[in-house]
Simulated assay, not measured.
Amino acid sequence: MNAMLETLACAQRPVPATPPVALTFGRVLTQLDMGLALFVGEGPTQLALPFCAPFLVREETLVAVDAANCFNLYRLTEWARRKRLGSPALLNRLRIARAFTPFQLATILYHIGGEMERYRASCLVITGLPECLYDEELTEQEARNTFARCQGSLLQLATRYPVLAFSEWPPHPVGKRIRFLDSLASLARSVFEVHRAEPILFAPVKAPGLLTISKEA
């Protein structure tokens, strides 16, 4: 087990409501830059849509690849109404590609760069990776090959765009497939553990220029 996996594994143990190093939603937004930002924990996929909102308000176009079936556009419409924003225009700037199988996810990620250019998108959001690969019906070889395809696409995309990936902790033991999460963390420019506090807090596990939590924390 390498250092990053040890840090992530350590972060899964019960933690105080307030982590030793904690950032708010607004502070995390200022840290997002070119490259992959990984959000891990219990329930981070529910934050994918809120993270899209600031980009949309700035009239930027986003592309979301949703393999966790977590994008509820009704929530975005209600939020826009409360903020007195034009929800049709807002929704038109959010392009969603839904992946219902790991193989669809790999194929979408391979081709999504063209869609990013077509819509002049400024950011890519991904949910459901790597947890869609924990399905026991997938053989180990299928899971490894599919993850390798996704990983290769992410490497290229992260050199051109900010990529925000939202990943859940495994709901059950997944054996060697936990390494998929470790590989994503190694690729990422920054990694944040999501703490379901009120307000939601983010513990930086890996973040350039910031104090981060360590495996001893």
Rank of each mutant, 00 (worst) to 15 (best):
L47D: 02
A64W: 15
A48F: 13
A48P: 05
G41V: 02
G86N: 06
Y74G: 03
I96W: 04
C70F: 14
F51A: 00
E60L: 05
L47V: 08
V57A: 10
K83P: 11
G86P: 04
R98C: 12
F55N: 05
R84L: 08
S87V: 06
Q46R: 06
A99T: 09
F51K: 01
S87P: 13
R58V: 01
S87G: 10
A48R: 11
V63N: 07
A64F: 15
A48H: 14
L47I: 06
R58I: 14
E78C: 04
C70H: 12
L49R: 03
A67F: 11
N92T: 03
F71G: 08
L90Y: 10
D66C: 08
L56S: 00
K83S: 12
G86W: 04
A53D: 14
A97W: 04
V40T: 05
T45V: 15
P44R: 03
E60K: 12
L49A: 12
L73K: 10
L90G: 01
L56C: 00
P50Y: 15
L62Q: 02
P54D: 01
L90P: 00
P54S: 01
A53I: 15
T61Y: 08
I96R: 00
D66L: 15
E59C: 06
F100G: 11
L62R: 01
A67I: 04
N72I: 12
N72C: 08
E42R: 08
R98A: 10
Q46P: 01
E42I: 12
E60Y: 05
N69C: 13
G86S: 03
R98Y: 15
L91E: 03
G43M: 08
P54M: 02
L56Q: 00
T61I: 03
N92K: 05
I96V: 06
L90C: 03
R81K: 11
L73N: 00
